[in-house]
Design a protein around this nucleic acid. Structure first.
Length: 841
RNA sequence: GGAUCUGUAGCUCAGUUGGUUAGAGCGCUUGAUUCACAUUCAAGAGGUCACAGGUUCGAGUCCUGUCAGAUCCACCA
């Protein structure tokens, strides 16, 4: 073994060893409960980022389950990611001076497919480099034909159940993408725009969008607004840029009498609220802006102008005609933008496919409410419920080219046959309508409609449904709780009658060292692959696990990753130290002899229990921290040092084996590399069973705890007084029975039997440091300080015990503990007093 | 407008149902070291747990309010 652990020399080899050994495939004890995770499919349109590195947590769960002997399935996949990928690919095209309009939709689809396949290949390699123990032989892609088949079935079934319908409604239209999007795909931004106060007959109307006035079909006031009651029901004629117009005044609760002038123009085709008013009052819908973001024919001379240009022109013309009362130039409001491409959203009325969710969401709400599905952290339960309860019908059609085409064929002849049919293959349409008598739907599904079916769709096509569904855990970013997790629950329950997963584990975005969001514009993005190259995959994984609580992504920095690189090196060197002695070792149960032997075996056993509990409760940070501290603070700093005075190889090796197992789910590579160095191991660490507890004597282990306390005291005093290798005088059986050990640990020149001279070690009876009276003098101030502390502590304990209510109400155990402590504190104070007195005499 | 989260050492964060003298890593100070590891070891400094009330024998932990920061949802003619 080399002096320092170099991950780059081992990781690829070890991953290959795992994969080729079949360790990622489900095996395990069929009598044990199966464990399954469906990997959230990364969008196959770029490189892995820090968010994907959080999959390490899922890997930790999978590795732990595997070592528990549970049949374990971690099913990976990749996502075509609809509009996101289309936008990414269009940017790629733009670099070559092209746009999607240089292609037919089919050509564009094929080109995108090729692009995605290249990226997928790349990403799969990157995910392997993260050490993810997923079963790649089962990998699914959201556009795999068998997946699409299931999505089609779901659509047809929903339609047959009357839950899918087609309707004209106002939607969020992106003029750049030329497609409608869901509310969740819109991000609102605050901005300042001019608010125009336009004269209209007897009224003044406030609007930021004068260009939509050609779509106005009414004026509205609040029913109780006394200023306007006389006009309600009247048709008012007024001058306008295209000549005289006439609009009816209606009364609607929606109008806020305090805003502007209390009168609004109603434009049902271009404003969601106006659409609602229009529905209530059966108003005409006049489209003034087209899907291309330009004004339509009804805008007369403004037809063909882009929205913003038309706004300026209309405002200018109104002004020239004296129809503008005034303009508020500081009006702040929020405007919707398409979150993927950043284009301002145009509310438009278009015909779309809708999913009626009112019935669909009920079982989902029930499953969450009843706790059949649990959330980690639990606060997301309420969020998921709130969202589902307020959920309205879902527009599942997108006018984009990259996606799963909606399997609908329309009657082109408008004859007595059905207006459309749903068919997974065009041949069915041809059979039904006859060649040339039908039109193919060109809309694609909202990506989330298909990915909402991901858990059951994947596992059905791999043949694992019966064994592994419902899956155990869904781990993903909390940002997609609504768009993905909720929909998986709805659609999973709809199609299978079962919940898709038992537990939802959510994490947040990974932030930089200052806790700031990572973004390209801030230049604080840390590339996970660069980090794994420089510090090793295990180091990155530990940095993303420890110090990170559920629901957050925590912070990451090079410094932090470097720290865990050091941990891996520590582990490596501990192993190197032990294995150098283990040439002829053959496996044997540990036979503890010394107090140290008992102590370390007890520590490892205790931590095995604590770490298991933490992992099972999804407290990965705590579990990782315990592994870290067990290896470094207990095993290396104390036991390895102790073993230098008395070596018990089976204890060393057994502890190392246990620690490697405990660390494996967190740091899979370095632990397996070390494991492979152990000539006697018959199977790889990845499939080795989780460690058992050792048998120890707690009395013996307690002796070592006393020795540790003594050693710490001696070290501390030595530093305070500036002693180099002092000698010790002892009249304690424990000390005299462990002279070699204590000498080594406390760096003493020797230990003699004897008593009563020199500096007594506070809190430890019958042990003295052989130092001169002058040296004790230099220590007296420290002794006094400690005396003071002991006194204060004793006083605090005493007042607690004097409190009758405490003694009465607190658990008896706790009260007893307080009493014991008081005795100890008093003893210590007494010792210190005696010592101070002796010195000052 | 509705909701959620956060505020603990110089920095980044733990602290599970209220119960030791509040912890870790990094940073800092002092010292050590050819014998597994300088990607090391030892010792140490550093916190009125944002603030104000309350409940309790006991509050970092529970409740109310205030201040500061972050996020989500709804919505703004």
């Amino acid at each position: 073994m080399e002096k320092a652990y170099d991950p780059s020399k081992h990781e690829a080899r070890i991953y290959k060893l795992w994969e080729e050994s079949g360790a990622f495939k489900p095996a395990g004890d069929p009598k044990k409960p199966p464990f399954s995770i469906i990997m959230p499919p990364p969008n196959a349109n770029g490189n892995l980022h820090m968010g994907h590195a959080m999959y390490a947590l899922e890997d930790t769960m999978a590795r732990y389950a595997r070592m528990q002997g549970r049949p374990t399935l971690w099913l990976p996949g990749t996502d075509h990611a609809g509009i996101e990928t289309q936008v990414v690919f269009e940017k790629e095209l733009a670099k070559a001076g092209k746009s999607r309009f240089d292609f037919s939709p089919a050509e564009f689809y094929d080109a995108t497919y090729k692009f995605v396949m290249e990226n997928e290949h790349n990403m799969l390699a990157q995910m392997r480099s993260l050490g993810l123990s997923a079963d790649w032989s089962r990998k699914k892609f959201t556009l795999d034909p068998d997946i699409i088949e299931i999505v089609y079935d779901t659509f047809k079934q929903l339609h047959d159940d009357g839950l899918v319908y087609r309707a004209n409604r106002i939607v969020n239209w992106c003029p750049r993408c030329n497609a409608a999007f869901a509310d969740l795909e819109i991000k609102y931004r605050e901005q300042i725009d001019p608010l125009y106060y336009i004269k209209y007959g007897p009224f003044v109307l406030a609007t930021v969008r004068p260009e939509t006035k050609f779509g106005d079909t009414a004026l509205a006031v609040h029913p109780k607004d006394e200023r306007y009651t006389q006009y309600i029901g009247e048709a008012i004629e007024a001058d306008d840029v295209l000549g005289k117009i006439k609009l009816k005044v209606i009364a609607d609760e929606h109008v806020n009498p305090d805003f502007g002038t209390g009168v609004i123009k109603v434009t049902p085709a271009h404003d969601p609220n106006d659409w609602e008013i229009g529905q209530r009052h059966k108003l005409d819908v006049k489209q003034a802006v087209g899907t291309d973001g330009r004004l339509t024919e009804i805008a007369g001379k403004y037809a063909g102008m882009k929205v913003l240009d038309a706004r300026q022109q209309v405002a200018q013309d109104l002004e020239e005609q004296g129809l503008i009362e005034h303009i508020d130039m500081n009006y702040t409001h929020s405007v919707g933008y398409h979150d993927r491409c950043g284009t301002q959203i145009e509310p438009l009325v278009t015909e779309q496919w809708w999913l009626d969710v009112q019935e669909l969401k009920k079982p989902a709400i029930k499953a969450i409410k009843s706790g059949e599905i649990t959330f980690v952290p639990s606060r997301f339960k309420k969020q998921a419920l709130d969202w589902l309860e307020g959920l309205r019908d879902w527009n599942i059609s997108r006018q984009i080219w990259w996606g799963i085409r909606i399997p609908v064929y329309y009657n082109a002849k408008n004859d007595s046959k059905k207006p459309y049919i749903i068919a997974s293959h065009e041949t069915e349409a041809e059979k039904y309508y006859g060649k040339g008598n039908y039109e193919v739907e060109t809309d694609t599904f909202d990506t989330w409609f298909s990915s909402g079916q991901w858990p059951f769709a994947t596992i059905q096509t791999t043949g694992d449904f019966d064994r592994f569904y419902p899956t155990t855990v869904m781990g993903t970013m909390r940002d997609i709780l609504y768009q993905w997790v909720s929909r998986m629950i709805m659609l999973g329950l709809y199609r299978t009658g079962k919940i898709p997963f038992q537990t939802v584990y959510l994490w947040g975005a990974v932030n930089d060292a200052q806790g700031k969001k990572m973004s390209k514009s801030k230049g604080n993005v840390i590339n996970p692959l660069e980090m794994t190259t420089r510090f090793g995959t295990d180091a990155l994984r530990l940095a993303l696990t420890i110090g990170v609580t559920p629901g957050t992504g925590g912070t990451i920095s090079e410094k932090k990753i470097e720290g865990y690189r050091n941990f891996n090196n520590k582990l490596w060197n501990v192993a190197r130290f032990i294995l150098e002695k283990a040439d002829d070792y053959s496996p044997i149960n540990p036979d503890p002899q010394t107090p140290a032997d008992h102590w370390i075996l007890a520590r490892v056993s205790r931590e095995t229990v604590a770490i298991s509990k933490a992992i099972e409760a999804y407290r990965f940070s705590e579990a990782g921290e315990r592994v870290y501290s067990l290896l470094w603070n207990d095993f290396a700093d104390w036991y390895l040092e102790a073993s230098k005075s008395e070596t018990n190889l089976p204890v060393l090796v057994n502890c190392l084996e246990s620690i490697l197992k405990l660390a494996h789910p967190f740091a899979p590579f370095v632990t397996e590399v070390i494991w492979q160095e152990m000539a006697w191991q018959k199977q790889n660490l990845i499939i080795s069973p989780w460690p058992d507890n050792f048998k120890t004597s707690s009395a013996k282990a307690g002796e070592f705890t006393q020795i540790m306390a003594l050693v710490s005291q001696i070290r501390s005093i030595s530093v305070d007084i500036g002693l180099q290798k002092p000698a010790l005088l002892a009249d304690s059986n424990l000390v005299l029975a462990n002279t070699g050990l204590i000498k080594h640990l406390a760096r003493l020149s020797g230990i003699e039997k004897g008593e009563g001279s020199g500096l007594a070690i506070p809190g430890v009876s019958a042990v003295w440091l052989k130092v001169s009276p002058e040296q004790i003098q230099s220590y007296v101030s420290k002794l006094k300080r400690r005396r003071g502390e002991a006194g204060e502590y004793a006083a605090r304990l005493k007042s607690q015990l004097d409190n009758k209510a405490y003694v009465k109400s607190a658990p008896a155990e706790l009260v007893q503990q307080t009493k014991d402590r008081l005795v100890e504190a008093k003893e210590l104070a007494g010792e210190l007093d005696a010592q101070i007195k002796a010195v000052e005499a």
